[in-house]
Amino acid sequence: MSEVKKFLYVNRKAPYGTIYALESLEVVLIGAAFDQDVSLAFLDDGVFQLTRNQNTETIGVKNFSPTFRALGDYDVTKLYVERESLAERGLSESDLQEITYEDEDDDWAEKPSIRIVSRAEMADIMADQDVVLSF
């Protein structure tokens, strides 16, 4: 049995203007197969990745925001979003998509995957990892 490591994917960039957000999500999806302890962090412009109502029809680029809602099926259920980063951008939790997962340890109850945390809590989460992958 191989050891389980804590992986944190740090997302600090907005979607579409650059490819980092999409290719980060691709790593998360592939990484889910490795049964590690996975968390995602969204701070700075990374919080823009999770906003509602993204519509990319006119720019001709694939809208990958619905994929975040599928992460629960991959057992990726910890999406930490920094409150200060939202506030600095005039956003609040209600501007973000609803992302949920079914908790197998709690009779498959539907629970929110997005957890709004303070900057200090985000620093603690970062300090609790084995591997930090930045995008």
Binding site: R12, L43, R119, A123, A127
Partner: peptide, 26 residues
């Protein structure tokens, strides 16, 4: 348990350094 943070951008065009500073721990 501690972290090495690396910053590779000028703080005059990019917020990475300031964000990094706010997430450092003793």
């Amino acid at each position: 348990m501690s972290t090495l943070h690396t910053v590779n951008k000028s703080p005059f065009t990019n917020g990475s350094l300031l964000s990094c500073l706010k997430h450092c721990r003793p």
